[in-house]
Amino acid sequence: MSSNFELTVSRTIPASRKEVFEAWLSPDALQRFMCPAEGMSVPKVEVDACEGGSFLIVMLVGDKEMPHRGEYKTINRYEQLAFTWVSEHSMPGSLVTIDFKEKSPSETEVILHHVGFPSEESRTNHEGGWGRILETLGSQLG
C-alpha cells in the first residue's frame, strides 16, 4: 500500500550538476520553473537555503494565492536535496527528495521522488497521536 503514495519523475537537464542543484535553491530560478502554467504566476519566493531552513513559493491562479511551504531536510551539494512539501489543505506529511547524477560535465540527471508519508510521521504511528489528528480533522470537517 505504501507504494501507492510515492512517485518518481526523472529528467536529463542540459546543464552542470552544480548549476541544476543551485537552481532549486535560487529564488530567481524557482520563480521561473515553479510556475505551473500560462496564465499563472509566482509572485513570491522566499528561500532560507540551509538544513532546517524553510521556503515559501506562492503561486497565483487568477486572484487565488496558493502558498507552498516546506523545510529543507538535506542540502548535500551537489548530490541530494530533500525538503518537506506542504500546500494549503493538502496532506501535511509529504517529502520530496531529489538526486542529482552527473551524466557528463554538461548533463545532469535529476531524479525526483515524492513520498506521501515521511518517516518521522510513520514513527509517531501510535493510536494516541493519530487519534488526536483525526479528531482535529474531524472537527474541521464538521
Binding site: N4, F5, L7, V9, S10, R11, I13, A23, C35, V110
Partner: peptide
C-alpha cells in the same frame, strides 16, 4: 490518494520540463 498521485506526477513532470527550458 490516486488523484493525489496523478496530480503530483503531472506537476513535477512539468516542473522538470520548465527547468530544462530555464537552463
Amino acid at each position: 490518494p490516486y488523484e493525489w498521485l496523478h496530480f503530483y506526477q503531472h506537476f513535477w513532470s512539468e516542473r522538470l520540463d520548465s527547468l530544462v527550458d530555464y537552463v
